[in-house]
Design a protein around this nucleic acid. Structure first.
Lengths: 211, 211
DNA sequence: ATATTTTATGAATCATTCTTCAGGTTTGGA
DNA sequence: TCCAAACCTGAAGAATGATTCATAAAATAT
């Protein structure tokens, strides 16, 4: 798999004038729209450009290759989710472990289900790119936020916070993906919302002791 | 996304002679090898045929299109994992809930990590195909096996066994994928093996009561 | 007003790859 | 042995789509 990575995925040049910024935004938006309406395999640079109301050449002025586009879209989504997680972690410091678990689950699910169609489309996009660096960076950020949160719990002491934070991240991301990736029924989503907090709470209790 | 589904993905014709069966096996094997060495984006029908030691035409005699090949490979993997899960469920009937959780986790992880590289490659393959029917069938099979297992627990009674089986499936598949999909360190895998049983046991206890 | 930089165009290029088919080879039975 | 069915070949066809570049327009600076 020759999946591009690193520099090749960064923007070719920065827009300087307002109209250029506008163009880039339109391309961005068009990428998501095409992804949703046509799917990844039918996403061509020409089609995206057309949807954005510009020509292909313009697209290539800001993105050196098709995948740079996809990478940028994915990055934006992942960072939004990470922001939600980190903000929740900051807000829940020193709370009881129980509440932390509930809040964390809710924040994550809310962020991921804000636009389910887009989330699903991006799962597919991620498979097409070399996302090791991007996912690694996001993972590290989320990891330390969650670990620090756990350590600040007001009622209990979490043992091996790194292992627990690791498992918690995998559980949140994994279960959510398992449910959203397939065309989940409303019931599946409801079941996830109901069971995931129970799961996380039970785990945190099992992995902690009195202060 | 024009992802083929249903009939289009079934084999064009069945091999009748021994040499033909041999050819099909070789194509199968070659598909996985190319997937591992070149990646999905570089997997072309010609390349697979060459690796298998046959001509492209031969390949198209048994698979109507490239994706039928990928579908078949994925199907074989998923069914192997499902077999492992179902066998374990059958073996663990009437055991204590604790042991069930441990055995289930171990069986799933063993099946998925038997060939990590192939498992990772197939995560990517799955994203390229319309796997709704296939995944749905596998999910149903696993679901009823797990639910029946839970109901047979010798020491505790599981409430809402469908919801619990659902969550358990999502957790197993999701966390495992979250860890394997990225190039996980040996430590990550060890952490998963250590935490996942704890997670599942704690959850099952939380979702059950005395007999 | 003029020069310079930035931005936009889109037909043409270039490369890739799926898929077919007309014709040859091998197999197994009559 | 001979024939029909099964199997294999691989060059050619056809389509697709990523990317470039010469050119033109618009914005900004001088």
């Amino acid at each position: 798999m020759t999946r591009p990575s690193g520099d090749a995925l960064s923007a070719r040049k920065q827009p300087r004038q307002a109209r250029a910024q506008f163009t880039v935004d339109a391309i961005f938006e068009a990428t998501i729209q095409v992804l949703l309406s046509e799917g990844l395999s039918a996403l061509t640079t020409t089609r995206v450009a057309a949807r954005a109301g510009v020509s292909v050449g313009t697209l290539y002025q800001y993105f050196p290759q098709k995948q740079a586009l996809l990478f940028a879209v994915l990055q934006r989504h992942l960072e939004a989710v990470s922001d939600a997680v980190c903000a929740t972690c900051a807000r829940c410091r020193a709370m009881p472990l129980d509440q932390m678990a509930g809040a964390l689950v809710q924040a994550y699910l809310d962020a991921k289900t804000r636009d389910i169609a887009a989330t699903r489309a991006l799962y597919v996009v991620a498979a097409e790119l070399d996302t090791d660096d991007l996912l690694g960076a996001v993972a590290r950020r989320n990891h330390s936020a969650i670990r620090d949160l756990l350590l600040s719990a007001g009622d209990r002491r979490v043992h091996q916070p790194d292992a627990v934070a690791f498992a918690l991240r995998a559980t949140l991301a994994g279960t959510t993906r398992a449910v959203l990736e397939r065309d989940a029924t409303q019931g599946d989503l409801a079941a996830l919302r109901a069971e995931l907090p129970v799961l996380c709470r039970a785990y945190l209790v099992a992995r902690s002791g009195p202060l």
